[in-house]
Write a protein that binds this DNA or RNA. Structure first.
Length: 333
DNA sequence: CGTCTGACTGCCC
DNA sequence: TGGGCAGCCAGAC
């Protein structure tokens, strides 16, 4: 089985499983690391697990005392940006720390991290869905929204992708697909093996896509399936999920405007709706990192706008005259 | 369903 | 610089 896991610090783990014919056989959300561990333990030994998160901190191998990883350096040179992993675990973003923990769980379940050498089964590795999409759909996203672009990249590569899949789910499927390419010796790795590599597909030119017609079937043992079934509620709409995922990924010390979030989530004029969604999830994502187009905090932020600015100040954001310096602190994903 | 409201924006004074 | 205002989208009846 080829397994993909999308990690979110606040909303748990999305898990996708693809079989050898590239049919999606399982798509579910596990809210906790423990639930994910149960899934991992139920996997066949010869599975390959791809995770959208780093396995460990930077080892400082980039010349010049840089703090990020070699993989980030290499991808940056290719025009692919990703949030850098710091050398010290304590300052890593919470979703990164979830990733570190997940890789430990996977190792215990019989899937140690792959560092280099020939592809083999019974391993886990880091992937980056954005990079996978880029390889499969082309570098330019054009006028497509992120989710449309993601879906286009997976079309004809994986059978059985639900029409209403969220971005989290698509990312998990992209990870599972990356595991498939890895196991079929069609992959490239970025980074230094001593530190950890990011794996991306390198599709064979003769690649003809999934071999079987669309169909969904559970191929996991019953106890695991039962746990998944009880843990699969996703009440948010796809747009709301994208918004929450995006905001969850704004790093400490950076901010985004409501309009930035709306644009990144595929609805350029949906800034107001972003506010609606954040208001409904005040504790699940770092909403203090979202400010208006002038850099001002929300008048109705829990605890007051001053509290929001305090939190930002504590993260190192410069605040002046009741507003943040957007030029300096704005985050571009 | 239709209608209303809001952690928004850009544009016009 | 700042207030008014129309347009916008998701969520709540």
């Amino acid at each position: 089985m080829f397994v993909g896991i999308d990690v979110s610090a606040t909303r748990g783990f999305d898990v996708a499983v693809v079989d050898d014919d590239r049919r999606l056989v399982l798509l579910a959300k596990a809210k906790t690391l423990e639930a994910t561990a149960v899934i991992a333990q139920g996997l066949p030994k010869e599975s390959v697990v791809a995770v959208d998160a780093p396995p460990g901190p930077s080892r400082g191998l980039v010349p010049g005392g840089k703090r990020y990883r070699v993989a980030e350096e290499e991808l940056h040179r290719m025009g692919v940006s990703l949030y850098p992993v710091p050398p010290d675990e304590a300052t890593a973003a919470s979703w990164m720390r979830e990733g570190f923990a997940l890789f430990e769980v996977l190792a215990k379940a019989g899937f140690p991290v792959f560092f280099d050498g020939a592809a083999r089964q019974g391993v886990s590795f880091e992937c980056y869905p954005h990079l996978t999409y880029r390889t499969l759909a082309g570098a330019s996203r054009g006028s497509l929204s992120k989710i449309e672009w993601s879906r286009a990249a997976l079309r004809r590569r994986v059978a059985g992708v639900p029409k209403d899949a969220t971005q989290d789910e698509l990312d998990a499927i992209a990870a599972a697909l990356t595991a498939w390419f890895f196991a079929h010796e069609q992959f490239v790795g970025y980074g230094d093996p001593r530190e950890g590599v990011i794996i991306a597909p390198a599709p064979d030119e003769r690649d003809e896509g999934p071999l079987a017609p669309d169909q969904l079937a559970l191929a996991i043992d019953a106890p695991t399936a039962a746990i998944l079934a009880s843990d699969t509620t996703t009440k948010e709409t796809p747009f709301a999920q994208r918004v929450l995922r995006f905001v969850a990924n704004i790093p400490p010390g950076r901010v985004a405007t409501f309009g930035d979030v709306a644009r990144a989530c595929g609805k350029a004029t949906g800034a107001r709706a972003v506010g609606t969604i954040l208001a409904a999830h005040p504790f699940e994502v770092p909403t203090h990192r979202v400010v208006d187009a002038n850099g001002r905090p929300s008048p109705v932020y829990g605890g007051g706008p001053e509290r929001q600015l305090e939190r930002l100040t504590a993260e190192g954001v410069r605040v002046d005259g009741g507003k943040v310096d957007l030029k300096e602190s704005r985050w571009r994903a």
